[in-house]
Amino acid sequence: MKKLNTILLSYGFPIILAMLVIVVSMATDQFFSFSNILGIIHSAVPLMIVCCGLALVIMMGKIDLSVGSTAFLSTAISAVMIVRFNVPQILALPAILLVGAAAGAITGLIVVYLRINPLIASMGTMFIYRGIALQVVRSRVISLPDNIRNFGNLRIGPVYVDILIGLVILVLVYLLHQWSWFGRHVVAIGNSEETARKVGIKTNKVTLLAFILSGFFASLGGLFSICQLGSVTLHMGSGMEFTAIGALVIGGISLFGGEGKILPGVFLGGITLILIENSLNHLGASPYLYPFVRGGVIFIAMYADSLKQKLQPELQT
């Protein structure tokens, strides 16, 4: 019985995902088609990339709520540079990543040196970055030149180019997490910051770096997103922090820290959320129902996560 619980908790979401796919593809015609599935992955790519950075922070047992605003701020600055100041794209687009890393660094510095709880620190920066971004775009939607948009939807054969790039990034972050000292120290801090400090890990440095990466990947995700949409909207990134956290928890990356893997975790988590919306769409549900369903799914995932945490001591013996 205990074993069954463990299996359900560890593999519950893949199982549900598989069941969902089966049900929806039986109920509708076009759902289980190659192009639709590629389309789903395509639209999940920006979310997955944002998750890559946030995952590192969450695996440390900390949180960064500012990822959505960071994505907005960095893309807004670069879009304004391109559209209003005619800065060459070759300069403006990389600037996105720079802004993102800087934004992450600020949150990280507040957490590490002012010793403020990451939740409240990143909540503060979340609003600050959004405010600055709205100021920058002067509350207008900014449309980007066509070539950027074309790039976002470029395909090789049937496969979107950004899926390929996204997968490469996932693999790189996977290596960073699983095969580098940095990634291992992140996990160590997630296990116990106290113990990590005792065994000689430079926890401040690692924490700061993780927040910088969180900002970096948030802005990279933002870049992918504006490439797909061809514009920077005013709601860009709003609510993204929650969706990203949800995707991570669904992917088995525990909010209690230390647990989970980038692959397949981030991939599965990102896909699941987009898939659910896509299937609701195919089933003809009202689009206004989406946030409710998404919130419900994420809540259940988080409940399972904390249940797993509670069962942990029993699992040990």
Binding site: R184, V187, A188, N191, T195, K198, V199, G200, G258
Partner: peptide
Amino acid sequence: IALMLTMTIAENLFINSYQT
């Protein structure tokens, strides 16, 4: 015991002296 529970034995042993 000052071990990181979610990490492997080898990772724990080399926690602050990883060889690359």
